[in-house]
Every structure is written in C-alpha cells, then in structure tokens.
C-alpha cells in the first residue's frame, strides 16, 4: 500500500516537473493551451472532490471564479499581488459556506438551480453597483507573465491533488462516500451530513476563487460579463463527468481531450460551442455515464474476468 502510494507520488512529481518545463519551449500557443489545461484541471478536480461523492451538481464555478477575479481586480490597487489569491480563497470558501448552508439540506435539484443562478445573481449585482458608481470595468495591470500564471496554476493543481489525496484518506472523505451512497444511513451512523457536505463545497469554492484570482492579470480588463461567464460552470461539469469522478485523476482524463476539442471548435466554428456543450451532455448521460474512468475500469475488469476464465 505504502509502496504503491510512493510510486504514485513519484509519478505525479515527475509529471508536474515535466509540465513545469512547458514555458521553456517558448511557444505562446502551447503555453496558452497549458494554462487552459492547468486551469481546468484545478477547477474540475476540486469540483469533483465535492460533486463526485455527493452527486450534487454544482454550477457555481463561474460565480466563485468571478469573485476571485474581482478580488484581484479590486485588491490590486491596495495590496501586493501575492496576498490576493489567499484572500480570494477565503472569500470563495465563505460564499460556498453560505450557499451550502441554505441549500445542501434540500434535494439535489434545488442545489443545481440555486448554483445555476448564483453567477447571474452576483453579476447583476455587480453591474448594478457599477451603474451606480459610474464605473464600467476594471483594469488589472501587473508585471505577471503568462509563464508565472502557468506555474501558479500548476502549484495550485498540486495542492488540489494533495488535498484530494488527504481527504480521500480522511474521515471526511469516508463520510462523503457514505453520504453519496445513502444519506439516511450516514446520518444514522453518526455523520453530520450537512457539515461534511458544506466543508467539501467550501474546498471546491475556494479553489475556483483562487483560480479566478490567479487568472485575473491575464485578462487585463475585467468586466462582469467575462468574469462571470456561465459557460465556465458547464464546461467544468462536462469535463469532470466526461473524465469520471470516481477517481482523483478522473477529471484530468476529461480535461485534456475536451480542451483540445473546445479550442478546435471555437477556432473554426465559434458559434457552435453551445451545440458542442449540449452534445457533450447527451454523450455523458447516454454513452458514458461513468466517464472515461468507468470505461477504462470496465474494460480492465472484463479483461481480467476473461483471463480468469481462460
């Protein structure tokens, strides 16, 4: 067990080290693709930490991400940059706690609907506020380079994986698996189900907010409609489910092909991205209900069964 963990750790470290060399290629295209992949990896993996075991589908990613971007956008005038991502993380966690407390006691449908509207709610409030103050968008002017953003995201990904690994081995992780199977049993076994769910939702909210804060300098100009784009929430759900949420590395398996597909489609058919989202949802529900991970593990199990009978 420990040896297997050690090997996985070494492998992860190696992959991260190789990935960290990406900016050295000097290709702006690959770097920007790398940033997308790193960003989606953090977002989907942290999303799956919560939604995987509980089956609550959160569409709040865009809301957390937007709050994070605005934290950097507003805060950069008063504070040094390095202080901002942690602040964004705290804000994201607080917001997640509030949303979670209001909705996680109820059925999953209410949660989906609420999170779906959350980004829109925050967006409308910010626009209203800007109308009053007469300000439109915010310029985020920093000396941070693309490569630095990439490295930060990579570090964040490592952090999220470490957190996911630790949670998976903790009482909290076990509690969430039980909740995902049968909430009634969980409660009667002595698990505070509401607290466990809110705690993990806070982790995923914080991660998304930090990603927003880290990426803000890249946008240069932040306005509500770009910071709170609802597309982001859906992309994250699709990539995570496409990969599969049963394993920590599952979402990554969805992120890489989908990012390439998305880039290709939005480059050549920019109006068809919505259609792509729709088709992906249908593919997930009807063809890949357990994602690529389920597909891989199913095949492996069948092969093993065949060997056993041979």
């Amino acid at each position: 067990m420990i040896r297997a963990d050690g090997r996985t750790l070494a492998l992860v470290a190696l992959v991260l080290a190789v990935a960290a060399c990406l900016p050295l290629t000097g290709s702006a295209y690959w770097l920007s693709l790398g940033i997308s992949i790193a960003m989606y990896t953090v977002l989907t993996t942290s999303w799956a930490l919560f939604s995987g075991p509980t089956h609550y589908i959160s569409l709040a990613t865009a809301a957390f991400f937007g709050v994070g971007s605005y934290t950097t956008g507003i805060g950069i005038e008063y504070l040094p940059y390095w202080a901002l991502p942690p602040i964004a993380g705290v804000l994201g966690a607080v917001m997640a706690a509030l949303v979670g407390l209001a909705t996680l006691r109820l059925s999953g449908v209410y949660f989906v609907i609420f999170t779906l509207g959350l980004a829109e709610l925050v967006r409308q409030v910010i626009i209203w506020f800007q109308n009053i103050s007469g300000q439109k968008g915010i310029y985020v002017l920093t000396k941070i380079t693309e490569a630095q953003i990439f490295w930060q995201l990579l570090g964040l990904a490592a952090l999220v994986y470490a957190a996911g690994w630790a949670i998976g081995r903790s009482r909290l992780g076990f509690a969430l698996r039980i909740i995902g199977d049968d909430e009634e049993v969980a409660r009667h076994s002595g698990i505070n189900t509401a607290r466990a769910k809110v705690a993990l939702f806070m982790v995923s909210g914080a991660a998304a907010a930090v990603v927003g804060a880290v990426l803000a300098p890249r946008f240069v100009y932040i306005e509500p409609s770009t910071a709170f784009t609802p597309m982001l929430s859906f992309q994250v759900v699709i990539m995570a489910l496409l990969g599969g949420t049963g394993r920590l590395w599952g979402p990554l398996v969805g992120v890489i092909p989908f990012t390439f597909l998305w880039e290709a489609i939005s480059a050549s058919f920019p109006n068809q991205t919505t259609l792509l989202l729709g088709v992906s949802f249908l593919v997930i529900v009807y063809l890949l209900p357990r994602g690529f991970v389920g597909l891989i593990e199913g095949t492996r199990r069948r092969m093993r069964a065949r060997e056993a009978f041979a």
């Binding site: 859906f234 068809q272 259609l275 989202l277 088709v279 992906s280 949802f281 249908l282």
Partner: peptide
C-alpha cells in the same frame, strides 16, 4: 444533465 444537453443543443 440530459435536459441541459437538450437545452444547449436546441440553443445551438
């Protein structure tokens, strides 16, 4: 998920 898919497909 299925009706979201349907929604996006029809918007598309």
């Amino acid at each position: 998920l299925a009706t979201f898919g349907l929604a996006f497909v029809s918007v598309g």
